[in-house]
């Protein structure tokens, strides 16, 4: 109970940080904090494998990517709002959404399962069990994810390519002239 309270508070504070912090680096680091907290929460929910994956993939790969881009592009902090009403509208919608979801969750009290039973069943989210389901029941989904990752790789590479200059005949002539003048200069010296 206490564990959960502490962990939940940390997660929420981290989330608020993402939203409210000015500097992008600060916000990204705040998100990392939240993600790690979430990983711990996974552990309490008998999903040890998932927690590990969360840390490795999210924290180790995705956030690193984010930080690289932020630093590379030298993103500054934002300027003034153009539409102030949007902020308040967003808060309003958010409040409604949160209340609604919480109410929805509360309205459906379930019998908390027996911890021992769950531990035996899930075995801490053992990789073997996940693999059995993934390669069995969800085989199609697994293959599709593979395709998706391939597409992502190709797309990412294609997106960051610098456009190659077109080699028109005019440019080839110009290039030859440059090389000739360079050779002349070099030969002259």
């Amino acid at each position: 109970m206490v564990t959960f309270a502490i962990l939940a508070s940390v997660a929420v504070i981290g989330a608020l940080g993402v939203v409210l912090l000015r500097q992008p680096i600060h916000a990204a680091l705040s998100l990392v904090g939240t993600l790690l907290t979430l990983a711990v929460l996974f552990v309490t929910l008998q999903a040890h494998f998932l927690a590990a994956i969360q840390v490795i993939v999210y924290g180790g790969a995705i956030m690193v990517l984010f930080l690289f881009v932020i630093m590379l592009l030298n993103i500054e902090h934002e300027r003034k709002e153009v539409q102030p009403w949007l902020r308040w509208a967003a808060y309003g919608v958010g409040l409604v959404a949160a209340t609604g979801l919480i109410v929805g969750a509360m309205l459906d009290p379930r019998q908390a399962p027996d911890h021992a039973v769950v531990r035996d069943t899930l075995q801490g989210g053992h990789p073997r069990l996940i693999a059995e389901v993934l390669y069995g029941e969800f085989m199609l989904a697994f293959q599709l994810v593979g395709v998706l990752l391939l597409t992502g790789m190709v797309g990412a590479v294609a997106l960051v390519q610098r456009p190659r200059p077109q080699r028109t005949s005019a440019m080839i002539d110009e290039r030859r002239k440059e090389r000739a003048s360079d050779a002349l200069e070099a030969g002259g010296r």
């Binding site: 539409q83 949007l86 509208a89 967003a90 919608v93 409604v96 959404a97 609604g100 979801l101 109410v103 929805g104 309205l107 459906d108």
Partner: peptide, 27 residues
């Protein structure tokens, strides 16, 4: 033309729909 306005509209709509379904279904 502002993306954020559109996003706000989408979110609001989605929230309403989900809430209706959740609360009505739960009850």
């Amino acid at each position: 033309g502002y993306v954020r306005n559109y996003a706000l509209a989408m979110l609001a709509g989605a929230v309403i729909l989900v809430l209706v379904v959740v609360i009505a279904g739960v009850r």
